[in-house]
Simulated assay, not measured.
Amino acid sequence: MFENLNDWLYHPITQTLWQVLFAIIVYFIVRSVGKNIIKKVFDKKQSKQVSKARLQTLEKLLLNVFSYVLFFIIAFNILDTLGFNLGPVLAAAGVVGLAIGFGAQGLVSDVVTGFFLLLERQLEVGDYVTAGGVDGIVEELGFRTTMIRGFDGTLHYLPNRNITNVDNHSRGNMRALVDLTIPSGEQTDTSIKKVQAAIQSFDHPALVTKPEVIGVETNDLSTTVIRVIAKTESMQQWAVERELRKVIRAYFETQENDA
Rank of each mutant, 00 (worst) to 15 (best):
M1P: 02
F2L: 07
N4Q: 02
L5D: 11
L9D: 05
Y10L: 09
H11R: 02
H11E: 12
Q15P: 01
I24N: 04
I25F: 15
F28L: 14
V33D: 07
V33E: 03
V33S: 04
K35S: 09
K35A: 10
N36F: 14
I37N: 03
K39F: 10
K44P: 02
K45A: 15
K48Y: 12
Q49Y: 11
V50G: 10
V50D: 07
R54F: 14
E59Y: 07
E59M: 13
K60L: 15
L62Q: 12
L63V: 14
L63C: 09
L63Q: 13
S67N: 14
V69W: 05
L70F: 14
A75Y: 13
N77C: 12
I78H: 01
L79R: 06
T81P: 08
F84V: 15
N85R: 11
L86K: 08
P88Q: 06
A92V: 13
G94T: 13
V96T: 14
V96C: 09
I100R: 07
G101C: 04
G101F: 13
F102W: 14
Q105N: 11
G106A: 10
T113G: 09
T113E: 12
G114I: 05
F115H: 09
L123F: 15
L123Y: 10
E124D: 12
G126D: 01
V129E: 03
T130R: 11
V134N: 01
D135L: 08
D135F: 07
D135K: 08
D135S: 10
G136M: 02
F143H: 00
T145Q: 08
T146P: 05
M147C: 03
F151A: 00
G153I: 03
T154Q: 10
H156V: 04
Y157L: 07
P159R: 01
R161T: 00
I163A: 03
I163M: 03
D167V: 07
D167M: 05
N168G: 05
G172L: 00
M174L: 01
M174T: 12
R175S: 07
R175A: 07
R175P: 00
A176G: 12
L177C: 04
D179F: 04
L180A: 00
T181H: 03
T181L: 07
T181W: 02
P183N: 09
P183Y: 00
P183L: 06
S184G: 10
E186I: 00
E186H: 01
T188L: 13
T190R: 10
K193G: 12
V195L: 04
V195A: 04
Q196L: 00
Q196D: 06
A197E: 13
S201E: 14
F202S: 01
F202D: 02
H204M: 10
P205K: 02
V213N: 09
G215D: 06
V216A: 01
S222I: 09
T223H: 10
V225N: 06
K231S: 15
K231L: 14
E233N: 15
M235G: 04
V240Y: 06
V240R: 02
E241P: 09
R242M: 12
V247R: 07
I248R: 01
A250R: 08
A250H: 09
Y251L: 05
F252I: 06
F252A: 08
D258N: 15
A259Q: 14
A259E: 11
